[in-house]
Amino acid sequence: MDRWSGLDEFVAVATCGSFTGAAQQLDTSVAQVSRRVKTLESELGYQLLTRTTRNLALTPEGQIFLGHARLLQHAYEDATAALRQRDSEPTGKIRLTAPVMYGEQYIMPLVHQFMCRFPSVTVEMELTNAQLDLVEQGVDLAIRIGQLKDSSLHAKRLSQRRTLVCVSPEYLQQQGPITSIRDLARQNCLLGNAQYWRFMDHGVERHVKVTGTLRCNSGWALLDAAKQGLGVVQLPHYYVQDAIECKELVTVLDDFTPKEEGIWAVYPPRKYLSTAIRALIDFLAQSL
């Protein structure tokens, strides 16, 4: 048997969750996909999928084989990419993911510029604040902010994020100056998902628990609340910089600003990146 036979079909079924979706993705028939997967299972001597009239799921053996199958696909892509590298114009599809707000405001406008420059490139972007498994989900490139947890991935630093504490001038006039971290104990702090705010105090990182009357997982909502004088907010600079320039907000506790965090382009450990992915990473790094 051709050792590759059925591998692409199996990965497509596992990714799409159905034989119909896999057939559409591979531009073939459902019968052909089913036949190839059955042949693969027969050659391996293991059942990879459990099928009922309503559900399809990976067996434990299928879950093990899926990760290796995706690596085999990447290895084949690397081998072909190595032949056409360097001098060729970027072309092909890039699967990309980024945090929702940062992706909407900063990454996608740059991706659009990149696509105008290289019209042979197609992009599939998933904006999500969840950290996707790049190998498992077939993602070529992820934009991540802060400390990187997965050391098996490759990364290139694109930019950095500063975190600022801001209030409206009206709030500051009513409540008085905020010059020390200790002053936050008597302030109405506008909270996101974190229980603590980060600061640097004489070279030592401190995590300060804060309280307040509003908690929301939207940075834009917290920004609006701060502009309306509801309280003190700690947000990345790209949320608040326009409001600071317009004097709707002022910064406080600047002497305690935490260390800048990296903004990264992260990609799976592959020997050869396609020309398109490499060019996009370089373009983002230059632009940001």
Rank of each mutant, 00 (worst) to 15 (best):
F10R: 05
V11K: 01
Q25N: 03
D27E: 08
T28H: 05
S34I: 05
R35V: 00
R35H: 10
R35E: 11
V37A: 02
E41G: 02
S42C: 00
L48C: 03
N55Y: 14
T59W: 13
E61L: 08
G62Y: 04
I64E: 09
A69V: 01
E77F: 02
T80F: 01
T80E: 10
A82S: 15
A82E: 13
A82Y: 05
R84F: 04
P90E: 06
P90T: 13
I94G: 03
V100R: 14
M101Y: 15
E104M: 15
P109Y: 01
F114C: 08
M115V: 15
P119D: 04
V123S: 02
G138V: 02
A142L: 04
A142G: 07
A142P: 06
I143Q: 05
G146P: 10
K149L: 09
D150F: 00
D150G: 08
S151T: 08
S152W: 04
H154V: 09
K156W: 01
L158F: 05
Q160H: 13
Q160R: 14
T163V: 12
C166T: 15
S168E: 14
P169C: 11
P169T: 07
Q174C: 12
I178Q: 05
I181V: 14
R182I: 00
L184T: 00
Q187W: 12
Q187M: 15
Q195F: 09
Q195H: 13
W197K: 12
R198A: 10
M200N: 15
H202Y: 11
G203I: 06
E205G: 02
H207L: 14
T211W: 11
G219E: 06
L222G: 07
L222Q: 01
G229R: 10
G231R: 12
L235G: 07
H237P: 00
A243E: 05
K247M: 06
K247A: 12
V250C: 15
T257W: 00
P258S: 04
G262Y: 07
I263C: 11
K271Q: 12
Y272N: 01
L273W: 03
F283C: 08
Q286D: 10
S287P: 06
